[in-house]
């Protein structure tokens, strides 16, 4: 209780001293609930590293079984990322992984209609080591080939094992 009173008085003095600018009172707390917090790396880095694609590799962060899609694909386990998914600096609506026998087959990142495909393409181009194949709409980076496709209601980016 003593601490609370002291801290409260200190806060009040600070508020009175610096009132007028909104962010001055803001505590550094709001970068949370993202993939990077539990995983320690950005999603795209995780998806592109070789280790992620090895048999029995651990999926970083938290994933849950996605039964609807699972029912359509026998023998393939489909999991959905539980954390908010920010991929290539943009908020994705959904990230799923397809696995078989405990090995990743592909990651699927879906961006909703509010995210322009040009922006996605530009950010992927900034990030990736490779160059866009404009015909196949693919680009290589690390252990993966990314395939971009526009679908009804948004844009899909698939992370697939690197295709030579």
């Amino acid at each position: 209780m003593r601490k609370v009173i002291i801290a409260g008085v200190a806060s009040l003095i600070t508020v009175l001293a610096i009132s007028g600018t909104s962010s001055l009172q803001a505590l550094p707390n709001s970068v949370g609930g993202l993939f990077i917090n539990p995983a320690g790396m950005r999603f795209e880095e995780f998806g592109a590293r070789k280790l992620t694609w090895e048999p029995n590799a651990k999926l970083l962060a938290d994933w849950e079984l996605w039964t609807a899609d699972n029912a359509r694909q026998p023998n393939v386990e489909v999991l959905k990322l539980k954390q908010k998914a920010i991929v290539f600096g943009l908020e994705a609506s959904e990230v799923t992984v397809h696995r078989k026998d405990n090995q990743v087959l592909k990651f699927n990142v879906f961006f909703g209609p509010g995210t322009e495909v040009e922006k996605i393409e530009k950010n992927i181009g900034l990030w990736a080591d490779g160059k866009w194949d404009q015909v196949a709409n693919t680009i290589n980076h690390g252990a993966v080939t990314l395939k971009l496709s526009q679908v009804k209601g948004g844009t899909h980016v698939e992370f697939l094992p690197k295709q030579s």
């Binding site: 962010s23 803001a26 550094p28 970068v31 880095e45 920010i86 600096g89 908020e91 950010n123």
Partner: peptide, 15 residues
């Protein structure tokens, strides 16, 4: 430092 932060800039700094 306590600073303002957004995903787009974090992505840029990461890249």
């Amino acid at each position: 430092v306590w600073r303002r932060w957004n995903q787009q800039r974090d992505f840029l700094h990461s890249v």
